[in-house]
Each structure stands twice: as C-alpha cells, then as structure tokens.
Design a binder for these strands. Structure first.
Lengths: 234, 234
DNA sequence: ACCTGAACACCGTTCAAGT
DNA sequence: ACCTGAACACCGTTCAAGT
C-alpha cells in the first residue's frame, strides 16, 4: 500500500479529477457539454488519456451517477424512534435535494440500470424502511421499488420541464414558466386541463412531490394495515 | 386548400415517411441508430433534406414521441359504467403495452416536456378519471400527475434494465437476467437486498407494474374517501 | 503505466447551388 | 418549394509511438 506517485510528469490524472470535471461540465452545460474531449481539456490532458482510467464514455457517466448518489446521507432516515412515514419523507426530500442539484444527471439515472453500490445502498435503506412499516419481505421489496419509481420518475419529469442547461431556476420561476405555457392550452380541445392550469403549473414544486409521495405512502400503509389484520407475520 | 403536389421528382418526402423511418431505426437499433443521416438514407434522400420538414433532430424526435402517444386508444377507459379504478388500470396497461413496444423512445419521453397534443390528451383523460373518482379539481390534477409520474417512471426504469437495443425480450427472459445479476449482490453489504433477490428480479414484470399502480390508486382512494367524509363537493 | 499525435468513422447543421 | 454536394465544427474511440 505504499502508493508511489508523481515522479516526473506521469500521473497527471486521477479518476476523481475526471469525475469532478465531468460533473462540473454536466452541471454547467448539460449532457452535450460533457464530452470526452471537453472533460479531457478541463483536466488539461489529451482526449484519449481518459481511456487509461475508464473504458468508455458510458463508464464515466455511470461513475458520475454513482458519485451523485454517494452524496446521499444515510442517517436522515436512520432514527428508528421516528415513525417510518416521517423517515421516508425525510429521506425522499433529502434525495430530491441532492439529485436535483445535478439536473442533467437525471436522464442518465433513469436511462440506465441503477445498480451501482450507492444505488443499492439506497434500495437497501428503502427495504429497511418498508420492513419497519410492517410489510412482509416480498411486499417490502415491491414497495421499495414503488418508491424508487416514484422518486426517480418525479425527479426526471421535474427536470424535463426545463429546456435550458445549467442549474435549475428557483421554484417560483419554474412555476411561472409553466403557468405561461399552460395558459395557452386550448379550452375546446382540453377543457379539464385548461381549467386546472393553475394547479398544473405547480407540478414541478417540492410540495407536489411530497403530496404524491404521501398518496403512495397511504397506499403502502393500507397494505401494511391489511397485513396486520390478516395476522401475517410482521 | 387545393394542395398541389408531385409535378416531377420533387416531393420525394413526407413528414410521415421521415417519422416512420425514424421510429423503425429507433426500434431496431436504439437511440444511436436513429441519426439524421441514417433516417435520410432510409427514405432515400440526402441528410439535409430532412431539414425541409423539421427544424432540428430534436424536433424529429419530439414528433416521434407524439406519434407513439397517438397509438394510445382513448376508449379503453371511456366506459363510465365501469368503476374508475378498473378504468385506470385498463388505461395504464394499455399505455404500457403501446409504449414499451418502442423501448428506445422512453428516454425521450421522460427527458422532455410531454406537452404535445397526444400527451395532453392522455393527461386530459387522467384528469377526467380522477374527477370520476370523486376528487375536487385541484386534487384531481395532482392525482393525474401522480399517475403520469408513476406510469412513465415505471416504464422508463423497466426499459433501463435492458442494455441491448431492439425490442424488449420476453418478460421471463428479463426476469431471469435480473435474477442472475442480483444473485451476485454481496450479502454482507446489502443483506436485505440479497435476501429479497427473487422478488427484486420481478420488478420488471407487468405484475409489479400493476401492483405498484394499485398502491397508488389505494392512496388516491383514501383521499377521495376522506374528501367525501369531509363533505366537500364532488 | 501513462500520456500524446494522428487518424478513422461518424455526428448535426449550414450554405450555396440547382430544378 | 424542395432537394443536393460540399463543407464546418464537432463527436467517441483506436492505434502506434514516446517516456
């Protein structure tokens, strides 16, 4: 483990440095801005040098996703004294906050397997929480996946409404943009949509995110209650 | 409206023909296979001829998404005699069947605004159903969006598990592939995930899709019941 | 082992030109 | 109005070569 380094100009690079550059470019300019060539340029190296550390661009992007999911703190839902629903809500809001900090990464997350170590750690935690909810193992797994679908689906659609690359504008601004857009929906073709335009504008808020999550948790709660009534093992 | 056409070799192309070619290529070889150049080649034309009909590649892909959503039949959920939950389930399964026929299109759907005419028509129908469920307008809109998030989130994550382009393999094959993958999850790091591997393998099935949908509908039902008890207007 | 220069086979898009 | 040839400014990736 003696880790010799830096004798001469070699080892100009690290995997870390490459991922930092990739994530920065992704955050600043969106998916198109994070090419192998721009990443290499940012770390001051020839494009093909990246291939010493990663086998392909896809591998770099997978590692970026893992890096982002690694920012999720696992203790927000760890306190077993709190009710499981509160813990799920805290975790969900925390995940949302961390992930939406990198809008351009969402298509990568819902476009690939989500089976890296940190993705598995999140799944493990959700499984744990669903166990605490009183669900038997196989229902707990199904419910955990339902939560994954809801979380990543909601985040992806949220981000998908913003066309320009770069950090997400403030919530109020995104709602205002949607309000303008849906004011133009023709009443004769889509009467209900047009009538509900004001509510539709708020689809991108954290309030709607939490509202949807609570309906999902209500559905899971009902299952847990039914299981308990049935007399199945906790 | 006299629409003169075809005098000489001009009008070799149609928007329809371009979209057909684009969708075929998308279905056969995935997103990378559907380049402006391959699309043009398939319809027998120079690459830049496509720009006579669409302003950009992004516009072509948006139109492809709309074309797929146009395959959704609106009468599967129209029969008001049936209970609203059954109608939502029918619609959801129908949408899933139609959309999963084009796996490569899902990243396009969850990566963009979903505000085309056919997307709006689907939203309108969900709004209608949520009204029939007894929800007041603003809750109906929130619930409709929850369903959109669930539907497209579930479909996107479903497709994201299959790395090779082309049509989705049969369900049994996809489950088997997942079983092999999750058999390799280390028990010491992810005990619950490893223990639930057999259930996790079934995340990609239509059964799990329906299971999750039913939990969501349970959550929405609870809200409707509460609203009714409250004495709010139907 | 790590990095470079040069090249290959692609992209999306634009522009001037032809009918 | 519709299409072509040619070009521009990019891609990801590979390969031989240098240290």
């Amino acid at each position: 483990m003696t880790e010799r380094r830096r004798r001469g100009p070699r080892r100009a690079l690290t995997e870390e440095a490459i991922l930092d550059a990739a994530l920065e470019l992704l955050d600043e300019g969106g998916a198109d801005a994070a090419s192998i060539r721009t990443i290499a340029a940012r770390v001051g190296v020839a494009p093909n040098a990246v291939y010493t550390y990663f086998p392909s661009k896809a591998a770099v992007l997978r590692a970026v996703v893992e890096r982002i999911l690694g920012d999720i703190e696992h203790d927000v839902a760890a306190d077993r004294a709190r009710p499981w629903r509160e813990r799920v809500e805290s975790l969900a809001l925390h995940v949302r906050e961390r992930v939406l900090a990198h809008p351009a990464a969402l298509p990568l997350m819902v476009g690939g397997p989500l089976d890296g170590r940190n993705a598995l750690a999140l799944h493990e935690q959700l499984l744990d929480l669903m166990g605490d909810a009183g669900l038997p193992p196989s229902d707990a797994a199904r419910a955990a996946y339902l939560l994954v679908v809801y979380l990543f689906g909601a985040m992806a659609l949220n981000v998908a409404q913003v066309p320009e690359p770069g950090p997400l504008p403030p919530e109020a601004e995104r709602v205002a943009a949607r309000r303008r857009r849906f004011a133009a929906v023709p009443t004769e073709s889509f009467p209900r949509t047009a009538a509900a335009a004001d509510t539709i504008a708020t689809y991108v808020t954290s309030e709607q995110f939490l509202w949807g999550l609570r309906r999902v948790l209500d559905g899971i709660s009902a299952l847990a209650a039914h299981t308990a009534t049935d007399g199945s093992p906790a």
